[in-house]
């Protein structure tokens, strides 16, 4: 039954707005870029200062580089503070962050409240097994080998607080927000597991 408390519906592969989500796996940055291309408005990407990886503007999806603000705080406390501050700001469309340590339930819950207050969406790129119980959804993203002239991604929705899990194999070339679903896994139209 649909109630007023239900969050607004989100399209497949979309992130539910005003919540904080998590993505892991080797393709997590690709997933973040995919989401960045689909969120119009200013973007904030928070990475610890010591992380060698940084986005290369020429390789980003169209229109992402000029909307992107990079924050490079030193230390995990400053990083979490930055995430919360950015989520609390109504100006930002999507906050992407790469915490280096697993979030506690309190910290995760705090981020959810901040996202609600600022009407912002957050996406945490987590290390292996670094998930927090407070996250809205958790995605496992892996790049997949494919035929000539294709860039396949295998994105699994492993945890979903308000909906069903999913498993997608899609072709996304990393230049625009457009993607092409290769196959749809059977689990997608089934109701959520009643045991949960």
């Amino acid at each position: 039954m649909k109630t007023l408390l239900d969050p607004p519906a989100c399209p497949p592969l979309g992130l539910r707005p005003m919540r904080v989500h998590e993505a892991g796996g080797r393709g997590r940055r690709s997933f973040a870029l995919f989401q960045a291309a689909r969120h119009p408005g200013p973007l904030v990407w928070i990475t610890p200062a010591h992380l060698p990886e940084q986005p290369l503007p020429a390789g980003l999806p169209m229109g992402v580089a000029e909307r992107l603000h990079l924050l490079r705080p030193v230390g995990e406390t400053d990083l979490l503070w930055c995430i919360e501050e950015a989520l609390r700001s109504p100006a930002v469309a999507l906050v992407i962050a790469e915490p280096q340590q697993p979030l506690s339930l309190t910290a995760g819950r705090r981020l959810q409240l901040a996202a609600e207050a600022g009407r912002t969406t957050g996406l945490l790129l987590i290390q292996q097994d670094g998930g927090s119980a407070a996250s809205e959804t958790r995605w496992q993203c892996e790049p997949a080998p494919g035929p000539e002239d294709s860039t396949l991604h295998h994105w699994q929705l492993n945890r979903n607080k308000r909906g069903t899990n999913g498993d997608w194999m899609l072709h996304w070339d990393g230049t625009t927000a457009a993607f092409h679903l290769v196959s749809e896994a059977g689990k997608r139209h089934q109701p959520a597991d009643p045991a949960r």
Partner: peptide, 13 residues
């Protein structure tokens, strides 16, 4: 705005 090239990676290290 910066030009986009498909021959460039998204993440550089």
């Amino acid at each position: 705005p910066s030009p986009t090239h498909r021959t460039r990676p998204a993440i550089l290290f």
